[in-house]
Design a protein around this nucleic acid. Structure first.
Lengths: 333, 333
DNA sequence: TTGTACGCGTTATCAA
DNA sequence: TTGATAACGCGTACAA
């Protein structure tokens, strides 16, 4: 069994409360006693029990991150940054993999209440309903949402503006003089893919280009779907002169199909992809792509959450982060 | 403030201990009282405070996972599986990103003792020294190592046999009739890359092929290093007739270089890569590759750790898992 | 079956 | 500056 404050107190010959003060660097202990105590603490490698501390102080210094899954998507980038900020502020991270299952999410939220974690970041998923609004962490609704909408604007939320990313991509192709831009969407949740379609529309509208719904293909985001999309698109009445594809894996198939058809990128078909993943940089040619501010999203989420825990409300409830466009070989003519 | 046992007890008009028994499904409560109690618990959405439970029962049901980083490497796959097993057994996972920094690792280990986590899995990193052997979780050394060696065989360890993976790859090329096999290594830690070189040696030795050290190139694992490696290798006295490359990103550069030189894979140069990542399947042609049993490693680690916590020692201290070879287009002639 | 009382390891309040 | 003592919320041995 590990040592306790009591043990240390007995060894030094003082009261527990004095040891506690010494350890926590609080005033009310003479320098002499303090030194003596800390020496023993060091010598016996005493570690205060944070369970007991938590119970007494009503805080655990634990944050939870709920997410749909670790390997798919870009969640690991976000988590790394949440962890980094949290660690600096003295918080630990508990991982909760919901597998995109609302029931599991509820179970976890319950558990987090029991565990008395100080707060939680929820990444992605469908629209948040009342089970989120109703969970009380540390007495408050200490929750921050990332890329997840909420029925009411009560919870601090960080959104990455997919619509704007899509707008940037489409505008880039328009600026290069292309007008029949194919849009191939992937398997994100409906909201995000719809946002991307919105951005596409907006860019077209701005330049008074007529919208052709035949140029939009919705897929399951697989590599083969990307391949098939090209084949389907080149055979329509007004075929596309360029491609914007909202998912990196899709782009692998698309590029294969383009090459297989004997065409060149970007000479015959310029291509814009989505996501800062390694995939887009491996494809030959290196793809122009929309890059999302994932690190920033993670850091902001942690920042806001920690402020929330310390009762410092953020100014705005919703922060919208904008993606940027990285122009590369696949659109350099 | 959340409700407590006491509150519930007062509401129902019984003692706290009775409520405790009812909630924990222990005998010694009449069915009638139990129902009554659980109804109130439900109604008021009472959540027992796990801090207090932990303090009383001396357990937190929290496991920690220490790892060098989330986005690089295959750690997320392992973590997902640890989390899955842990969750089934009623454990939560705390993430500790050590950034490959030994000091940070020590700090975390300290923290975990303070937090009274029940156990820890340590993924990767250099050789474990005494700070690991000395950390006591729940009074014991409840730690499982994955792909990390320890000075003494005291800690349960799961190793993925990189040497065997390398042996498989080399043997495959030898069986196809190639004898001048280039080995290009990446930026894993020294131990792992050395193991891979060992496996390569062994395969050559088995077939009495003379070892040519000029065919081995050690790199930083970058894409460009893969590219450069090819250029360097084709100009040596006895150039390679095939390639085994121990890192997926390297293979991207290598394949580029081969194609750029006007050669074909596998006709001119067959290529074997390492790792089950998406990258190897995106490259054209799809690369034959060594696949590591990552999910299995994660599950086993969690299993063993949980058994350890429950004082059920594993039979063997060290479990060695073997990679397999997935033969694909890059070696099909 | 039910209740009382103590322990778990801290922090914090109030006297001394 | 110190020390005794009461929380914090729960589990549990023991008594009723």
């Amino acid at each position: 069994m590990p040592l306790t404050l009591k043990d240390i107190a007995e060894m030094v010959g003082v009261a527990e409360s004095t040891v506690s003060r010494a350890i926590n660097d609080k005033e009310g202990v003479s320098e002499a006693k303090k030194k003596e105590i800390l020496k023993i603490v060091e010598e016996y490698n005493f570690k205060p029990n944070q369970l007991a501390q938590g119970l007494a102080k009503q805080e655990t210094h634990i944050l939870a991150v709920l997410l749909p899954g670790l390997s798919q998507g870009n969640y690991s980038k976000i988590i790394e940054n949440i962890e980094a900020i949290a660690e600096k502020a003295g918080y630990q991270i508990i991982l909760c993999n919901t597998h995109n299952d609302l029931t599991k999410e509820k179970t976890y939220l319950n558990l987090l209440e029991e565990k008395r974690v100080d707060g939680a970041v929820i990444l992605g998923g469908e629209i948040a309903d009342h089970h989120i609004l109703n969970t009380k962490l540390r007495g408050n609704n200490n929750i921050v949402l990332v890329n997840r909408l909420c029925e009411e604007i009560l919870i601090p939320t960080i959104l990455i503006d997919s619509s704007y990313g899509s707008y940037l991509a489409t505008k880039h192709l328009l600026d290069l003089g292309y007008i029949n831009i194919a849009l191939i969407t992937g398997n994100n949740n409906d909201y995000i893919e719809n946002e991307k379609i919105k951005g596409y529309h907006q860019a077209l509208k701005e330049q008074n280009i007529k919208f052709n719904h035949n140029l939009i293909i919705e897929t399951d985001g697989s590599r083969s779907a990307g391949y098939q999309a090209f084949i389907d698109l080149v055979n329509i009445k007004i075929p596309p002169d360029s491609f914007f594809i909202t998912d990196d894996l899709l782009s692998v198939g698309l590029v294969e199909a383009i090459k297989m058809g004997g065409y060149f990128i970007p000479q015959d078909y310029p291509v814009v992809s989505y996501g800062g993943t390694i995939i887009n940089s491996i494809i030959e040619p290196d793809l122009t792509r929309v890059i999302e501010p994932l690190s920033q999203a993670g850091k902001m989420a942690a920042d806001i959450l920690i402020k929330l825990i310390n009762n410092k409300q953020a100014e705005e409830k919703i922060k919208v982060l904008r993606p940027s466009l990285k122009i590369s070989d696949s659109t350099k003519i």
